[in-house]
């Protein structure tokens, strides 16, 4: 079973702040991490290979620094890593990213399953998974919380807003996984050491069969034209005093709101 996991290195958004004075993003000292949902994707890929045999290859598109994230995926237990890297790919929106990753996957050859996280922490779009599946013309099952494979058939339990849906999908297919699907492992020391010796395949624009007008900024139908800090409005009323006084005032407010 050949599994390809799509992953991305992202800034840890929990640490990103807006400078109240300049109203700009402060990212100083914000660490780069593997997109958390992608850790679940890697974990699922490794588990499926442990169970069914085969190889788990991690694939990312990103700047040279993304090698760090690939190393971690290898330390978790991925067998191979492929890094699509080059300035030509920069500025890609989800369409161009999907196209580029799909071309890289084609180049990797036969595969049975592609796994990605349900969305990234930075963009939150959840668009690249379905985009890749469409480019490759394979079935998709997003928001997977449980996966079972038997032969060429896969059963996927999906978690939707208010319900679970179980799909039967024929392989090859793509799934995007939610956090609850598994608990990503910590890289064990032997794998940390072994990962340092594993080669990472780097593909630049010349290594891929990708049309220049479909990658990077040129291949992106959408463009960001402005970035700004979210508005903060509101002028609230502060209720102070001893607890009984505060509670009385709150009850009064709740009564006005017809909540009590």
């Amino acid at each position: 079973m050949n599994i390809i996991v799509l992953m991305k290195q992202v800034p840890d958004t929990a640490e990103v702040r807006i400078d109240p004075v300049s109203n700009t993003l402060v990212r100083e000292g914000v660490p780069s991490i593997i997109n958390p949902f992608d850790e679940n994707a890697i974990e699922e890929g490794i588990r499926l290979v442990e169970k069914h045999g085969g190889r788990c290859t991690v694939l990312t598109m990103g700047p040279p620094q993304a090698e760090e994230a690939l190393r971690r995926a290898l330390a978790m237990g991925a067998d191979e890593a492929v890094h699509v890297c080059g300035r030509e790919f920069a500025g890609a929106d989800t369409w161009a990213t999907s196209y580029t990753l799909a071309q890289a996957i084609r180049q990797l050859g036969e595969f049975d399953l592609i796994i990605c996280g349900k969305q990234t922490f930075e963009g939150d779009t959840a668009q690249v998974g379905p985009g890749v599946a469409e480019q490759l013309g394979i079935a998709q099952a997003t928001y997977a919380i449980e996966v079972q494979i038997e032969g060429r058939k896969m059963r996927v339990k999906r978690v939707l807003e208010d319900r679970y849906e179980t799909l039967e999908v024929r392989l090859p297919a793509l799934i995007s996984v939610v956090k609850q699907i598994n608990e990503p492992r910590h890289p064990r020391l032997k794998n940390v050491m072994a990962a340092k010796k594993k080669p990472i395949t780097v593909w630049g624009v010349d290594d891929l069969d990708a049309r220049p007008n479909l990658i990077g900024l040129a291949g992106s139908p959408t463009s960001v034209v402005r970035i700004f800090a979210p508005e903060r409005h509101h002028k609230g009323e502060i209720i102070e005093g001893e607890t009984p006084v505060v509670v009385d005032k709150l009850i009064e407010k709740l009564r006005q709101l017809e909540a009590v």
Binding site: H186, L189, V192, M193
Partner: peptide
């Protein structure tokens, strides 16, 4: 570098588990 990488892995495990 090997030690640093190993310590980072141990630290993460200790902190999170």
């Amino acid at each position: 570098q090997d030690q640093q990488d190993i310590f980072a892995a141990i630290k993460e495990f200790c902190d999170e588990e």
